[in-house]
Amino acid sequence: MSANLAAARLASSGPIDLGVLPSELDGGLASRAAIGLAILATDQTLEHEFRALVRIPGVAFYEARVFNDNDVTPNTLRAIGPRIAPCVDLILPSIPLDVVGFGCTSATMMLGEEAVFAEIRKARPGVACTTPVTGALAAFKALGVKGIGLLTPYSPKINEGLVAYFTGRGLDIAAVATFDRRDDREAARISLASIEAAAEKMAAVPGVEAIFISCTSLRVAEAVAGLEQRIGIPVTSSNHAMAWHCLRLAGIDDVVPAGGRLFGLPASRTPA
């Protein structure tokens, strides 16, 4: 502190007013890409897994929550549809986003990807969109696989719909299994050991070229690379595939260390 300032401070009963100081604006946390996420109110996992996977300087994600019921049924999934746009509207209003992801696999399947995109674009016209289903389809294409092992926590009825959805898009679901945990609060607590054991069993089925672990509540993204090494085929999940697709749609082609095979691959730049 200069002598004059020191003297002024001693003589004053309040702070020394330094006035308006110069400042510069940089690109902020999202100088390379801003990702918006519409996440289910009950989801305990998606943000944790995105934090583990999206660790690239200049790339940031911002989220809002959409109400959903704890029980996963066709009716509760369809009810989410009209709530998507108001949720997306809460993500950084007036600040541009490069891509918006909707974080529910089963609701995307029930509503259809185009219907989900239409809801997102009510709030963000023209934005690139993705979902766990969209990300998975892009991932399978990038990996060059069609024979899929599908592991979920859903009811058999929901699984039937997901199998039909993927089959209708040219995939061969060579194996399917469920933990049958229909309460989203329980799905988030399925242990990693249980998921890995199920994936290892599924990988032994003839025709399975890759494993897709469906549901944003399931915790597996951080373990994908090690699991792939053990079973010898690619592995992805709802959060894992959507995080990768968000980055690629936003033009971020960086390789994510320990992200597994998928995070070393590019994807089509055609916006979803």
Rank of each mutant, 00 (worst) to 15 (best):
R78S: 15
I158R: 07
H48T: 08
V20C: 11
A128Q: 01
T45F: 06
V54E: 00
A138T: 07
R55I: 08
A85L: 09
M109F: 11
L40C: 05
P15Y: 10
Q44H: 13
V145H: 02
D98T: 11
I39F: 04
T108Q: 00
L25C: 08
E113G: 06
L53S: 08
R124N: 07
L21Q: 15
A34G: 15
F50G: 01
L143Q: 00
L37Q: 01
V88A: 04
L46D: 03
L137V: 06
G149H: 04
D69G: 14
E63Q: 15
G135L: 05
A136R: 00
E47A: 11
A33T: 10
A33I: 11
K146E: 05
P82N: 14
P74W: 11
A60E: 07
E119Q: 13
T152Q: 09
P86M: 09
G28L: 02
S23G: 10
A118R: 10
C104Y: 02
V88R: 02
S94N: 14
V99M: 04
P15E: 14
P132L: 08
A139E: 04
V127F: 03
D71S: 11
I35W: 06
R51W: 14
I16N: 12
L143G: 02
L151R: 11
E114M: 06
A85S: 14
G101R: 06
L46Q: 01
M109W: 01
M109P: 01
T131M: 03
L18A: 15
A128T: 03
L151E: 02
T130M: 02
I35E: 02
A38P: 05
I35C: 03
V100G: 03
G112K: 13
V127P: 04
E113Y: 03
T105S: 15
